[in-house]
Design a protein around this nucleic acid. Structure first.
Lengths: 224, 224
DNA sequence: ACAAAAGTGTTGACTTTACACCCATGG
DNA sequence: CCATGGGTGTAAAGTCAACACTTTTGT
């Protein structure tokens, strides 16, 4: 491959992460406000240009830290976006990740070198976003929805013990669907993601609720 | 973003496709042999560097055509690989796709400008591959396995009518698992991917078998 | 008529869904 | 002592796995 060939010159890689949280039954995404052109003043997802000396996931985490101050977040790659004109500056490919974090356990840095603000937005109240980040966020949510039923990605929201009525609110918020209290319990337990702790705690009700936790290891099952 | 910053300079994008076929109950992948350094003489998946004036999928299809002569193939992106040292030449990100095609319906071009050979390899007899293509191929197969139960990706192998015993062989080859003839029929019909044509044809048996076809549109179902 | 492969049916064990009912606690 | 949410139970419908049986054809 010839580095000088104009067909290949000046390509770059964005690493972008859609970070979700759920608070009081509302699913929210983290957005930051751009300080510079292009899209100056627009809200976008956390992300930026990949460095040559870092792997993709590493770069995505560095960008999260730089733009929001969030550390120690687990992320998962879900799609790569690469329309020719997705960035007006030069040809940029965007490798996109999702992450979940408890917004009450982290302190967001509002202003950084490149951003003038940062905040959590309910996913049904997302403003117009810069670049192709609206499309990325939309796909990210679909991916998140598929992951909460087969992985322990919600462990970020419930790192320790939780009650089933409590986590049901989170499932309902993310899937945008209500479940029968009694059947949800059976469904969730059947997914084999969580286990009983033989302890009880309290959520909303008066009666103490059983406490569960995410299992250490989750075995996946056959597709057919 | 400063184009001159050494942290970003000389990045590029590969578009790589793992192309699968199934022949006589054997799942095979298409490999091409490299003519030039690096990895000269090694087998790799079809792919190459993305051009600045083409979208990702477009580039992947162009590379397939250039390296194998295959046209009109449907492909689907499944993961992006980006380890710092995955290419010895310069920093390259690889956006990877899968595709399925009937090897009997296409004529593979054996030699091109950049390749000295091309062939179908049974997936349990893959030689050592150049770059990180072994990892890519392994993940591609897992993705393919998940797709054949929820999409019409096998339509490429059965564009028209087919019998259930016939397609069962294909499922068994890809999933590397045997199914009870009678239960497989029910499972497959329950996936709502195919429909009866009210016509019959012949496969291996003496008795004529019912012919099915993939449905025009496939509706996806709730995750929980 | 018989072998071979295709198609249909049955049974028992689970799941799922839509509910009714009981339980523990705070006020 | 009762309202409130939490936990358990049940019956009908549906699915799933392991089978036996019948059908259609070529020889």
């Amino acid at each position: 491959m010839k580095k000088s060939n104009a067909l290949y010159k000046n390509q770059g890689v964005h690493v972008i992460t859609a970070i979700f949280t759920v608070e009081q039954g509302v699913t929210k995404a983290l957005l930051v406000k751009r300080k510079n052109e292009p899209y100056k003043g627009d809200w976008i997802l956390t992300g930026g240009a990949l460095y040559n000396n870092e792997d993709l996931e590493e770069g995505a985490k560095r960008e999260i830290l730089e733009k929001s101050g969030i550390e120690n977040i687990e992320i998962e790659q879900f799609h790569t976006f690469g329309k020719v004109d997705r960035s007006p500056v030069m040809r940029m490919i965007a490798v996109a990740y999702i992450g979940v974090i408890d917004c009450n356990r982290v302190k967001i840095i509002r202003e950084t070198t490149n951003t003038s603000n940062a905040d959590w937005f309910p996913i049904d109240k997302i403003p117009g976003l810069g670049f192709d980040h609206e499309e990325i966020l939309k796909e990210a949510l679909i991916y998140l929805q598929s992951k909460i039923v087969s992985t322990d990605i919600l462990k970020a929201l419930f790192p320790n013990e939780f009650t089933i009525p409590e986590i049901q609110k989170t499932y309902e918020a993310i899937l945008n669907r209500k479940f029968d209290r009694r059947n949800f319990r059976k469904k969730l337990l059947n997914l084999n993601l969580i286990e009983d702790t033989n302890r009880t705690g309290k959520f909303e009700g008066k009666k103490p609720a059983k406490l569960y936790r995410f299992k250490k290891s989750i075995k996946k099952q056959n597709v057919l």
